[in-house]
Write a protein that binds this DNA or RNA. Structure first.
Lengths: 344, 344
DNA sequence: CTGTTAGCGCATTCAT
DNA sequence: ATGAATGCGCTAACAG
């Protein structure tokens, strides 16, 4: 009854207890053990008990690999690759994906590569049927790394120019139209002098304008009063925001690279006694639920994350139905829309 | 080169492409195919190319189950069960666990049961070697549901009274000592009239005082001016906080059930023109990084999440080293400490 | 109700 | 450098 260390016969440590051991211990065939373990029908209550006790005594646990290998209806697993779970965007995105996946009985293995991306992906690919996520590597490298596993590439900005590498599908985000909408809305509310806080983080090198900035410049017709780059964090956003206002005090509308940075902007505005949205309108990007946490709540260019999740699930379901055969690349797209809360 | 639909011979759809198909297609033995697929040595560059091409043509992908079944060094997977990824506590906890797991080459499958918990766990248990998480069910039920898989129960409050069900290990959180510390610190800063906002959410039934409240009452020596229960959210915290101040305007220190609710409290205090910490000191629970997002930043009773993650990994590593045999229950514990930021 | 016969798809011995 | 045997641990069909 109590938990004594098992291993009846002091056999070699590490020798796995198999169904045969249990069968022998219980004095039945291995098939009967299967019946007992899986709550199947054609077995008497008495033998079931006896088998279960034997299994318990030996500390038997069926091998998930062997079971899944032989079972007809295989369980599906999706590998989700995000840069970090410490960034709320990815966190909320993962939550939405998890919900959608659960509805369709898919399991989700999450990986947030901190060290060697290749190693992470290689390991991940041994445990899942498909991989979806945000990647920097080109499509061709990707299929190599994951050894032919189907990949769903998620885009936060724009799409690659239809690369059409077999086995690499994609869900793009149309952020541009959301930015255009936001600028129009800001203009309507009287904004004239637009500024932006961009992300300074461009993989090591010196600052390069992000696509968001380019779209924003286009949408404002080159009216930008100023741009400051900052670290992608709450405090980074706050500091960059302050610098922007210092350099261009007449700015009356600011697009923040993302909501995380926008959170810092709103907080800093308060410290600087700058009224939001009265003095400066602040717009973030992502539409995080977190935007509700500050006062005024964040107005944001919101990505349809639920739609994103559904698209991913649609695609991998199509792949699964085709038994993960190589299909022509599937491409979907989700829109971004202006979510008006208090800050603009 | 381009992605035409595969399935050379119009065989039955759903018939999986196996290593034998590739061997035949390439005119070699299956062993050679293995060598080519796994970048092994004893094979000529020419045949490797030929095999790889054949595999590509057929859309062959090795079965992860078969491979893991036969391979010596098995990949380990941990199932993490959290109530929801929309709650930042679990999100930050998951992030810490993911980091720790990656270092030890463990995969993490995350499940956030929204519907049927039993079904979720049953599904999860087919894909992982151990399950760790937050559960409401008693230990005995748990091992039943996961079919004998080892379980690491995570406690956010206290521990069960050493239930000692074989196969159920635990990492407890010593929140109580953190609360005692916090009360002492608050007293030292002049707080005298303590209030609390508790969680209203007790699985369907009417309000029941949480352990946190009981410890807080004990630590304050029954000095509580008032307690209001609210929904576990930012806005829920804000509303309950406002109600508490309405009922007991002289309260000068409030313990919020968690940081999420405390975020709402700080925000509401500002709207009500109540000075924090000058007028009221606000303390949250969890020590979320998110607490930095509000002004003043949240003072919080902080759980050592990194330590929690390490303990979990320690335990499952011990289990893995014992080949997941039934071991006597392992129990660890992490402390909570007062993280002083601005709100108290 | 129970046992026997088959594989599942792959990597690992060995041989050659 | 390649091929032939063998077995991983389990469940599915069939028998009895």
């Amino acid at each position: 009854m109590t938990g004594d260390l098992c291993r009846e016969k002091g056999g070699p440590v590490g020798k796995r207890v198999t169904i045969l051991d249990v069968a022998e211990e219980a004095g039945v065939s291995r098939q009967t053990v299967t019946r007992a373990m899986n709550d199947m029908s054609e077995i008497s209550a008495a033998t079931r008990r006896r088998v279960l006790e034997a299994a318990d005594r030996l500390g038997y646990r069926p091998s998930r690999y062997a079971r899944n290998l032989v079972t007809r209806q295989k369980a599906h697993a999706l590998g989700l690759v995000v840069p970090s779970l410490r960034n709320p965007y990815y966190t909320e995105m993962a939550a939405d994906l998890l919900s959608a996946a659960a509805e369709r009985r898919w399991q989700v293995v999450i990986a947030a590569p901190e060290g060697d991306v290749v190693e992470s992906l290689a390991l991940l690919s041994t445990q899942v049927d498909v991989i979806a996520g945000y990647f920097r590597r080109p499509d061709a490298d990707l299929v190599e790394i994951v050894r032919g596993l189907p990949v769903v590439r998620l885009g936060r900005e724009r799409s690659e120019p239809s690369s059409a590498v077999p086995g690499v599908h994609a869900v793009d985000t149309d952020l541009e139209s959301g930015i255009v909408d936001a600028v129009a809305a800001l203009r309507e509310r009287g904004a004239r002098r637009f500024g932006m806080v961009d992300s300074a983080h461009r993989s090591g090198g010196p600052y390069t304008p992000s696509p968001r900035r380019e779209w924003f410049e286009e949408a404002t017709g080159g009216e930008l009063t100023g741009v400051v780059a900052g670290e992608e964090s709450i405090s980074g956003g706050g500091e960059a925001f302050a610098a922007l206002l210092r350099q261009h005090p007449d700015t009356d509308a600011v697009l923040m690279f993302n909501d995380l940075m926008a959170l810092g902007a709103v907080q800093t505005a308060r410290a600087l006694r700058v009224d939001v949205p009265g003095g400066v309108r602040v717009v973030g990007v992502d539409g995080l639920a977190l935007g509700e946490a500050v006062d005024p709540p964040l107005t944001s260019i919101s990505l349809d994350r639920r739609g994103l999740a559904e698209h991913i699930l649609d695609i991998i379901q199509i792949l699964a139905d085709a038994d993960f055969a190589r299909l022509p690349p599937i491409r979907r797209s989700v829109r971004a829309t202006l979510l008006t809360r208090g800050s603009a």
